Amino acid sequence: MVQSSTFEVEFWGVRGSVSTPGESTVRYGGNTSCVEVRAGDTRIIFDGGTGLRLLGQKLLELDAVEAHIFFSHSHWDHIQGFPFFRPAFLPKNCFHVYGGVAPNGSTMKDRLSDQMLHPNFPVPMQIMKADLQFHNLDPGETVAIGDQGVTVETALLNHPNTALGYRVNWRGKSVVYATDTEHYPDHIDENLIRLCRNADILIYDACYTDEEYHDPKSPKIGWGHSTWQEALKLVDAAGVKQVLMFHHDPEHDDDCLDQIEAAVRERHPHSRMAREGLVLALKPEEACV
């Protein structure tokens, strides 16, 4: 069988905090965090927000699915789609699920299971018949996936109760997923600089603008999120080629995001706001024969 040479990123949910359906969010979408990376024959999913339900509907068209799901953390907007991920209920499928251990010692398996217990949900996680294989991750760990040379690096992010950022490497190209992280006031996070070094695509938490972050009446300092202005500082420091602003604040409607995107592109023409349905393709180097 001929192996695929595709290296693509597809956005299934780009919102943060809470889903925002409605007429004012049609262009960018209202589902919460979920990003799919297809590297050759390897399928990687970052986070299981409400966008995971949409991805699941698409995957039902396949005969059988094997995928690797990496959770940044377990705040609701990153796990709420998991109980509605229909491929996980089918015994023909296999999902490798990765995540860090919370400060209280709970694993990602514990937290995904807890959200499906009474009185929060009608059926437990055990009703899912797919082969679910859970893996605990330590910050700084690198995971090798499959037999095509795909690796996923990890890094600790600055977020309440911790979160992990990820970098997919394949055939000389790289995609970084670094959402739910707050910048530091006096320096750029060294963990992020290492994770993002010379990345082709960076998906970054730009929930706020600088003005909102520092708003004297309602500051967002300490909430665990960053701004698009700080994203561009990281881009310059790490040599990133393209940044996708991600984890849009629920108060930011389509018109607001259009204005932010115009400002972003003026400073960095190859960058933009993430939106549902957007597909980005990279051209990986040819494999050695």
Rank of each mutant, 00 (worst) to 15 (best):
M1N: 01
S4V: 06
S5Q: 08
S5E: 08
S5C: 05
E10T: 12
F11E: 02
G13T: 06
V14Y: 13
G22Y: 02
G22V: 11
T32G: 03
E36C: 06
A39R: 05
A39G: 10
T42S: 11
R43N: 12
F46E: 10
G49L: 05
R53C: 09
L55E: 01
L55R: 04
L55H: 03
L60T: 08
L60S: 08
E61S: 15
E66S: 07
I69Y: 09
F70S: 07
S74I: 15
H75S: 15
G81P: 07
F82G: 11
P83D: 02
F85G: 08
F89I: 14
P91S: 11
P91K: 09
K92L: 08
N93A: 13
C94N: 11
F95V: 12
H96T: 15
V97L: 14
G99P: 06
P103F: 00
K109N: 13
M116R: 04
M116I: 02
M125I: 10
M125P: 08
M128D: 04
L132A: 10
N136V: 07
N136F: 00
T142P: 11
T154Q: 02
A155E: 03
N161V: 15
T162M: 04
L164D: 06
L164S: 06
W170R: 15
W170G: 14
K173V: 09
S174A: 09
V175S: 07
V175A: 09
Y177H: 10
E182I: 00
P185V: 11
D186G: 14
H187L: 10
H187C: 13
I188P: 07
N191C: 10
R194P: 02
D200E: 08
D200Q: 04
D205N: 14
E212S: 13
H214L: 12
P216K: 10
S218M: 09
P219R: 12
P219Q: 06
K220I: 04
H225F: 11
H225L: 14
H225E: 04
A231I: 12
L234E: 10
V235G: 07
A238V: 06
A238N: 05
F246Q: 00
H247M: 00
C256W: 11
V264C: 00
E266T: 07
H268T: 09
H270D: 07
L280A: 09
K283A: 10
V289C: 00
